[in-house]
Amino acid sequence: MASLLGNGWYGYSSGSEGEDEDEGTEGYRKGGYYAARPGDRFAGGRYVAQRKLGWGNFSIVWLAYDTLQSRFVALKIQKSARDYAHAALHEIKLLSAVAKGDPMNSKCVVKLLDQFKHAGPNGQHVCLVTEFLGDSLLRLIRELGIIHTDLKPENVLLVSTINPAKDPVRSGFTPILDLSVGNQYGRTVISFSEKMLRMRARRAVAKISQRRVSLGGVLAEVEKERSLDGISLKCKIVDFGSACWADQQLSGEIQTRQYRAPEVIIGSGYSYSADLWSFACMAFELATGDLLFAPKNCQRCSEDEIASSGTHSKDYFDRYGDLKRIKRLKFWPLDRVLVERYNFTEPDAQGFADFLRPILDFTPENRPSAAQCLKHPWFN
């Protein structure tokens, strides 16, 4: 996984996308995480840690209370090693540019509120303070000549939480201001709460699995109908740790594999349209519940076997432009996939497929811009 696991989280989606349930203890050493506790104060006492929101390979994010502005914020505490500090400073530059270009905070990008350094037993940590956001979902707006390079559902958060009890304002949560109160509970309570939430999630998954029944040889899944009433669907893009300026692109591979554009895979250069490719993958995932591309290994091919041209093309294609190791591809039109596998109606499938196909064009220059996407009839 790319940027998100390399950086941090701003909302309630905690943990990594892999099987690890928490950050473990290995990262708490010289050059690593800062071992924050409820009640810990930062920036001369202005920000008071409340509870951990999530973690990534680069940082830990805490819910904090801003005593100066009397509001809850997200506090991202970067690991202290030099490379991690440089990554945080890079993200600060990009988010500062976004904030400068959006003084009214009207765009769908997380707002940087403050930044500072905090010294601890494991070194000096760069800290970012952003607005507090909710659960991850999807909405895309690109601005200011920045290429995000790691768009995926986990990096797009709802402005508010789905569960009101998880929102410190709506739930009437009383902020911890006394360090002794925070230490009274400490990590034991936090760890216990997280484990309880995970246990509930496992039970929920188990219940859904038990509801699967066989009807005439066809597996049907009976799920409880969910309502979005009262839930704001306004979203913001977060985690600009691996983002770059369009004219100052970073070296190395970008994007999480499942959302990685063809031009990135073969090394032929990328631009804004790489973010749009990721957006299309997310849109399909939200509509169906499945990944559009779920790479799998085979005996004679890699997960990155795909068509186009670039510095790595010879690894995948022969001199005629044919795939070297994949000889027989089974094509299934997108609209037919939506109808036959996901039970879309014909009109819905056709409209959605018409919207996605241009964005998934193998030629980056042929893809529509974000502004053009918004004008597509499917949005109406």
Rank of each mutant, 00 (worst) to 15 (best):
G15Y: 01
S193I: 13
Y259L: 00
L144P: 15
G321T: 08
T67H: 08
S273A: 11
G44C: 09
M282S: 13
E346T: 10
L338Q: 07
G11L: 02
K224P: 04
L228W: 12
V48L: 04
E263M: 02
R328T: 01
K111H: 15
G18P: 03
L144T: 15
M282A: 01
Y84S: 03
P377C: 09
L250V: 00
P262L: 06
T311P: 07
W9G: 08
K76M: 10
S191C: 11
G120H: 00
R212H: 14
K100D: 07
V337I: 06
I254M: 04
E253H: 02
I190C: 08
W277P: 04
Q249I: 09
S271L: 00
E91H: 05
Q69M: 13
Y316S: 03
D275K: 00
P153R: 00
L68I: 02
P364I: 06
M196T: 15
S209H: 11
A74E: 07
L151F: 02
R139E: 04
K234V: 03
T363D: 12
Y320E: 13
A274D: 00
P347M: 10
K152R: 03
S160M: 08
G24T: 06
L177Y: 10
Q184C: 05
E221Q: 10
K52Q: 11
K76E: 12
S80W: 02
I176F: 06
D239Q: 05
A370L: 01
I77S: 06
T67C: 00
S369R: 09
F293Y: 13
Y272G: 07
I92Q: 14
K79T: 00
K327M: 04
R142T: 15
I60G: 03
Q124K: 05
T25Q: 11
L286Y: 07
L323V: 07
Q299A: 15
Y320T: 07
L5D: 10
A81Q: 08
D348F: 12
T149P: 00
K93M: 00
A85E: 14
V339W: 03
T256Q: 04
H86S: 12
L374H: 03
R260G: 03
M196Y: 15
V169D: 07
G267C: 01
L250Q: 01
L158H: 04
R211Q: 08
K234C: 05
R226D: 14
V213Q: 09
L329G: 05
N297G: 10
E19F: 00
D229C: 02
A283Y: 05
L215N: 03
T256C: 04
D275Y: 01
G267W: 00
G44S: 05
F72M: 09
Y65Q: 02
